[in-house]
Simulated scan of single mutants.
Amino acid sequence: MKVTSILAIYCLFWVMSAFIVLPFGVRTHADEGTEPEAGHVHSAPVNFSGKRIAKRATILSIVLFALFYLNYTYGWVTTDDLDLVQRLRPN
């Protein structure tokens, strides 16, 4: 696999991981028992930390990419394994 392909796939895993970890640990004003500032929506997070999200996304994306690369290298799951029509067709 080329380095550019590795980098592109890792970036896709990172973005996906960022969206996965985004809702964890978020507390709203209702959870905190405070009133939001003027112009803020009530569901806006009180304690949003972009660094924390990036750190969690990086860790998760490293794990997911490692599993992807190991599967690519060793061929644990192939496209033939995912072809349900072929599996269900009687011989």
Rank of each mutant, 00 (worst) to 15 (best):
P90D: 05
F19K: 08
R87A: 15
V46G: 13
P23W: 12
F13T: 14
L22R: 11
D31S: 09
T34K: 15
H42V: 11
P90S: 06
N71R: 00
Q86W: 11
V26Q: 13
M16Y: 08
R87Y: 05
L82Q: 00
I62M: 00
T28L: 13
G39V: 15
N91R: 12
E35G: 06
I9D: 10
T78W: 01
P36Y: 13
M1R: 10
A18F: 07
M1H: 11
I59M: 08
L7P: 05
F13H: 15
V41M: 11
S43E: 11
K51G: 06
G33E: 11
T28G: 12
V46Q: 09
S61Q: 02
A44G: 03
F68S: 05
Y74T: 06
D80T: 08
C11D: 07
F24S: 09
Y10E: 01
A18H: 04
I20F: 14
A38F: 07
R87N: 04
T78E: 05
D80H: 07
D31E: 14
F19T: 09
V77F: 14
N47K: 13
D83S: 07
L7G: 11
V3P: 00
F65W: 04
V26A: 12
I9Y: 11
E32K: 05
A54V: 09
K51P: 00
I62N: 00
P90T: 07
W76D: 02
G33W: 07
M16D: 07
K2T: 07
Y72F: 13
K51T: 03
A66I: 10
L22T: 09
F19P: 04
D81Q: 02
